[in-house]
Every structure is written in C-alpha cells, then in structure tokens.
Amino acid sequence: MRDKKVRVLLAKPGLDGHDRGLKVLARGLRDAGMEVIYLGLRLTPEQIAQAALEEDVDVVGLSCLSGAHMVLFPKTVGLIKEKGGGDILFIGGGIIPGKDIPGLEAAGIAMVFGPGTPIGEITGFMKERVRRRGVDNQD
C-alpha cells in the first residue's frame, strides 16, 4: 500500500473576500506532508459539503472573517454529517470571539484556531486527531 495521506479541505464560506491567511495555512499543511484541497472563497455551505464528500477528506477547515460564522459553520458541518461525512474532523479559524467558541464546539467544530496560531500547533492537533480516528475505525 502507498502511504495514506491526510487529506484536508480548506474553504471560506460566505462573502468575505480575503483568503491570504487560508493560503498560508494551505502551504503549511502541504509542508507538513498533507494533501490540501484548496476550495477558495465565496462558497455556500452546500458547495463546501458536496466538495468535502467527493474528495473524501479527513479534515475540513473553515475560515470566516465576516462575522457570519455562527450561521455558516454549523450549517456546513450539519450538511456534511447528514450526507455521510460523520467521521470528518472539523476545525475553524478566522476572527471568532471567545464567547462563540462553546456554541461552535457544540455544533461539531473540534477546535477553533485564532489568527496567528503557529502552523505546527494546527498540524499537531490534526495529526493527533486523525490518527486517533484511524485507530478507532479498526475495531
């Protein structure tokens, strides 16, 4: 068997027009050996969900700077789970006030990474959680 690679989808739901931070993250994840499907910006939750399922990713990373994360993140996660992506790991980023984090966690976002989080911290978290998922799947 070839190496199983961690596959990550990165997307920005909603209308904000800045994806520089997400592109930096994409390259960081690539340099950590992951395969990043870079989806870009101005996407609907439905579009992101469809792409995540077709690409069979392990992780979906959502970023939002517009303030609409409390609507767009749960909607995207919900659609993906509903369509059979229940074992995908979700992470969030962007400008997310601390008070919103419990609500996002309740909606299925495993971790929210604020601006300026070292990439090593994000890759470390993802590798740990995806590895655990792999082990869990074997029994």
Binding site: E35, L39, G40
Partner: peptide
C-alpha cells in the same frame, strides 16, 4: 514533504 496543494477545483 510529500504533501500537496490541489487548487484546480477553484
């Protein structure tokens, strides 16, 4: 690294 950024879908 063996990783990749796959961007054609955009």
């Amino acid at each position: 690294s063996g990783g990749a950024v796959l961007g054609d879908r955009v």
